[in-house]
C-alpha cells in the first residue's frame, strides 16, 4: 500500500540521515539530562518527605494524585512528559512535507500516488516514530526505577500502559498540527514558527473573548493539550475519559491539513 511505503520512508528520513540522527541525539541528551538532573533527584526528595512538605506542595498544585502513584519516578515522568513531549513532537514532526514541497520532491511522489496518501502516510510515519520515542523514555524511567527502588518496579510497570496510551493521545494532535502547518510552510523552521504564532494568537484571542463576554467553557478546549491540566487530576484508566478531546483535535487538524494538501500547488 502506498501509505505504508510512505510511512516506512518517513522512518528512513529520520533514522538514515545525519539530520535525523542529530535530532535523535538531541532528544536523547535532553532526556538523559531530565532523568539525571530532575527525575532521579526529585524522586528521592519526594520519597523521603512525601508525608510532609512535598505532599502539601503537590496538593497546592492540584497534583495530590501523584502521591498515590506506586513509583514516584513514574509520577514525575508523567507530569514532565505531559508538558515536554508535545514540545519534542512539534520539533521532530515539523518537516512532514514542507521541505519536500519546496524542493519539488513531492512532485515525484504526486505522480505516483494521491496527495491524501502522501499526507496521511507522512503523518503515520511521524506518529509511529513518536510512539517509539515515548516507549524509549518510559523504558528509561523503568530502568531508573529498577536501579534505585526495585521494590517499586512492579507498581511502575502496572502504571506503564496507562501512561503510554495517554502520552500517545497527548502528542497525537501536535503531530497532526505539524502535518497541517508543514503543508502551509516552506520549511520545518517556518512550520515551527507558524505553530508558535498560531498558538500565541489563539491564546490571546481566547483571553480577549473571555474577558469581554465572560467565561465560555468551550474555548478552554480549543487548543491541543487543553486536557492536560485535567489529566493530572485523574487516576488510572479514568484518564481515558478525556481521550475524546485529543482525538477530536487530531481529527479536526488532520481534516484541515488534508484539505490544504489537496488544494496547494506543488
Amino acid at each position: 500500500m502506498p501509505i505504508l511505503s510512505i510511512c516506512q520512508f518517513e522512518w528512513s528520513r529520520l533514522f538514515l540521515t545525519r539530520r535525523g540522527w542529530l535530532s535523535i541525539a538531541a532528544f536523547v541528551l535532553i532526556w538523559i539530562l531530565i532523568l539525571v538532573t530532575i527525575i532521579a533527584p526529585a524522586a528521592r526528595v519526594v520519597t523521603s518527605e512525601l508525608s510532609g512538605l512535598a505532599a502539601i506542595a503537590l496538593e497546592a498544585l492540584g497534583l495530590q494524585n501523584l502521591s498515590r502513584w506506586a513509583s514516584v519516578e513514574m509520577a514525575l515522568y508523567w507530569v514532565i512528559s505531559l508538558y515536554l513531549l508535545p514540545l519534542f513532537s512539534i520539533t521532530i514532526a515539523a518537516d512532514q512535507t514542507a521541505s519536500d514541497k519546496t524542493r519539488g520532491t513531492l512532485r515525484f511522489l504526486a505522480l505516483r500516488t494521491t496527495r491524501s496518501q502522501i499526507f496521511f502516510g507522512r503523518f503515520l510515519g511521524q506518529f509511529t516514530i513518536q510512539i517509539l520515542l515515548v516507549a524509549v523514555t518510559i523504558a528509561s524511567v523503568l530502568i531508573l526505577v529498577g536501579y534505585y527502588s526495585t521494590d517499586k518496579l512492579s507498581g511502575a510497570l502496572e502504571s506503564t500502559p496507562v501512561v503510554f496510551v495517554n502520552l500517545l493521545l497527548v502528542i497525537m494532535p501536535y503531530v497532526a498540527l505539524m502535518a497541517l502547518l508543514s503543508v502551509l510552510a516552506r520549511s520545518a523552521r517556518q512550520a515551527t514558527l507558524y505553530a508558535i504564532v498560531a498558538w500565541t494568537i489563539i491564546s490571546i484571542a481566547i483571553g480577549v473573548i473571555q474577558s469581554r463576554y465572560g467565561p465560555l467553557p468551550i474555548l478552554d478546549w480549543v487548543l491541543p493539550g487543553s486536557q492536560i491540566g485535567n489529566l493530572l487530576r485523574l487516576d488510572g484508566w479514568d484518564t481515558l475519559s478525556l481521550a475524546p478531546v485529543p482525538l477530536l483535535h487530531t481529527a479536526i487538524l488532520l481534516f484541515a491539513g488534508w484539505l490544504a494538501m489537496r488544494r496547494i500547488d506543488l
Binding site: F9, L16, T17, R19, D100, R103, G104, T105, R107, F108
Partner: peptide, 16 residues
C-alpha cells in the same frame, strides 16, 4: 524538482 539530498538515490528510486 530535486530529490531529497540526504537519502541515497537508490532508496528514493525504490520508494517511487
Amino acid at each position: 524538482a530535486n530529490f531529497d539530498p540526504r537519502i541515497s538515490i537508490a532508496r528514493q528510486m525504490r520508494l517511487l
